[in-house]
Nucleic acid binder design. Sequence first.
DNA 1: ACGTGTGAACCGATTCACAGCA
DNA 2: TGCTGTGAATCGGTTCACACGT
Lengths: 211, 211
Amino acid sequence: MKNAVQNKYCSPEAIKRLALYLRGLKTLRGVNVKIISSEDITKILDVSACQFRKDLSFFGGFGKRGVGYEVDVLSREIERILGVNKNWPIALVGVGKLGGALLGFPGFSKFNLRILAAYDSDKKKIGKIVAGVKIEDVKKLKESIKEKKIKIGMICIPVERVQKVAEDMVRAGIKAMLNFAPVNININRKDVYISNMDMAAELESLIYFIK
Amino acid sequence: MKNAVQNKYCSPEAIKRLALYLRGLKTLRGVNVKIISSEDITKILDVSACQFRKDLSFFGGFGKRGVGYEVDVLSREIERILGVNKNWPIALVGVGKLGGALLGFPGFSKFNLRILAAYDSDKKKIGKIVAGVKIEDVKKLKESIKEKKIKIGMICIPVERVQKVAEDMVRAGIKAMLNFAPVNININRKDVYISNMDMAAELESLIYFIK
DNA sequence: ACGTGTGAACCGATTCACAGCA
DNA sequence: TGCTGTGAATCGGTTCACACGT
């Protein structure tokens, strides 16, 4: 077994797969499976056995030859690699229907992801508590995020205001953003990661394939 | 100019980029830009000039040498390629917070994507009208989707029930699905496309990069 | 002259195939 | 023997660089 090589480059695709593996492992743990082989994983996830092995071997050898991978051990290792074993508070901007739904989304809390701050420009919403989070004025976004030392943001506001809000968030110290508006955010910084959850674009590309 | 070569393989990644280009083009049209060059597009989207050209040339030559691309023409062509110039009704399963938010999501209607049917298992919700759509009993999902000839589905229900519902949808004729539950759907059919909007996995992979 | 369209070169990611270890 | 871990081979997608058309 080699030591983990964290300084070499690992593709974003591979990292997303790690998160996917974690899903699969949690499911297996739920039905009390203790050991899995790379071949087994192909039955529950759309991934090839050797891709699974290669992805993991990049960070070190977590399996036993002739046996397989311990579900518990591997889960913990992947959590450590991704960094999700620590708490990563999230700031949400835009508590409309979608933003409101995300505030209470059980899929987040299950994975150590907690929305700690929410912002809106609507006077009627400011001050209210939604899913345990007090909605603040978006005007105070910068100092509030800075003060709370939040590094992750989610954007659920209309297209027109997205760019400005994103810039404010970066100035406040946000390093990663999930953008739900169908527009491209322009931030020229290598230390800031933006991921677009463009649901309409996703649907549009699906349409191409079923035609 | 060569004729469009639709029989050769085009990667899903490239198709997603087409949808992205469409976003950019709509924005440009909004500010009355008539012509763009492949170099210009790099200023508003994270894509290289030659990738833009290559993606488009795969489907035929839509630009003028020495000039650029007409925004109007290119928009229409991409819409035709993707197939979004026609109406593609959508069926939504699970009208919880997230499902309810998607029902009224303006980002869909803007792009010809209309949710025409919604299903839930909650007796209190069945029969109610949300965002103009009457919620039906999920038990009647199969015949209802079949009757309405819907080909696209969206899944917003708890993990445990996802696999069964997905199978029912496929049996009813659904060819493409957007899955919002953090679980992998197993459908062994090449003519059915499943796209996972796994927001938690997305966040988890972002955490890796900001660590 | 200018920007598209495209074969060729390049590069990264996936898969193969087998050595190595339990 | 069985399954991991991994260099080598392969595959596909991106970029280069320039011929071509306006």
